[in-house]
Amino acid sequence: MSEHIATAFTAARAAGRSISHYPSNPPNTAPATLAEAYAVQAAAIARWPDAVAGWKVARVPGPFAAQYPDERLIGPAFAANIHRPVAGAMAQCPVFEGGFAAVEAEIVIVVAQDTPAGKTDWTADDVIPFVRSMHIGVEVASSPLATLNDLGPGAVISDFGNNWGVVVGAEIPNWREVQTIDVETFIDGQSVGTGTAHIKPGPLGALAFTLNKRAQQGAALRAGDVISTGMLTGVHDIRIGQQSRHVFAGCGELRVQITKAGG
Results as ranks from 00 to 15, higher is better:
Phe160Pro: 00
Ala206Val: 04
Gly169Asn: 02
Asn212Val: 01
Val168His: 02
Thr194Pro: 04
Ala223Cys: 12
Lys200Glu: 12
Gln216Gly: 15
Leu207Thr: 05
Asp225Tyr: 01
Leu221Cys: 09
Ala155Ser: 13
Arg176Ile: 10
Leu151Arg: 05
His135Tyr: 05
Ile187Pro: 00
Gln190Thr: 11
Asn212Arg: 02
Glu139Ala: 08
Val140Cys: 13
Asn163Gly: 07
Ser191Val: 09
Glu139Lys: 04
Leu151Asn: 09
Leu145Arg: 01
Ser133Gly: 13
Arg214Trp: 07
Lys213Gly: 07
Gly218Met: 03
Asn174Lys: 08
Gly224Phe: 00
Val192Arg: 06
Val183Asn: 06
Val166Glu: 02
Gly224Arg: 03
Ile227Cys: 09
Arg176Ser: 14
Glu171Trp: 06
Gly224Cys: 06
Gly202Thr: 00
Ala146Cys: 10
Gly218Pro: 03
Trp164Ala: 13
Gly137Ser: 04
Lys213Ser: 11
Ala223Ser: 13
Phe209Gln: 07
Ala141Trp: 00
Gln190Ile: 12
Arg176Phe: 11
Gly230Val: 05
Asp150Pro: 05
Pro173Val: 11
Glu177Asn: 14
Asp150Ala: 15
Asp188Thr: 10
Arg222Leu: 11
Ser133Asp: 11
Gln179His: 15
Thr196Tyr: 08
Ala220Thr: 15
Arg222Ile: 07
Lys213Trp: 02
Thr210Asn: 08
Asp150Cys: 07
Val138Leu: 09
Arg222Thr: 12
Phe209Ser: 05
Asp225His: 12
Thr194His: 09
Ser191Met: 14
Trp164Lys: 14
Met231Val: 09
Asn163His: 02
Ala220Trp: 12
Gln190His: 07
Gln217Asn: 08
Ser191Thr: 12
Val192Lys: 05
Ile227Tyr: 03
Gln216His: 12
Trp175Ala: 10
Gly202Ile: 00
Val192Pro: 01
Trp164Ser: 13
Ala219Tyr: 04
Gln216Ser: 15
Phe160Ala: 04
Ala146Met: 06
Leu211Trp: 04
Val192Cys: 09
Pro144Gln: 09
Met134Leu: 11
His135Pro: 08
Val131Cys: 15
Gly154Trp: 01
Ile199Thr: 06
Glu171Phe: 07
Gln216Tyr: 12
Val156Gly: 07
Val138Asp: 03
Asn149Lys: 14
Arg132Leu: 13
Pro153Gly: 10
Ser191Cys: 14
Pro153Trp: 03
Pro173Asp: 12
Arg176Gln: 15
Glu139Asp: 15
Leu221Gly: 03
Asp188Met: 10
Met231Leu: 13
Gly169Thr: 00
Arg132Ser: 15
Gly230Gln: 03
Ala197Asp: 10
Leu151Val: 12
Pro203Gly: 11
Val131Thr: 12
Val131Pro: 08
Pro153Lys: 05
Arg132His: 14
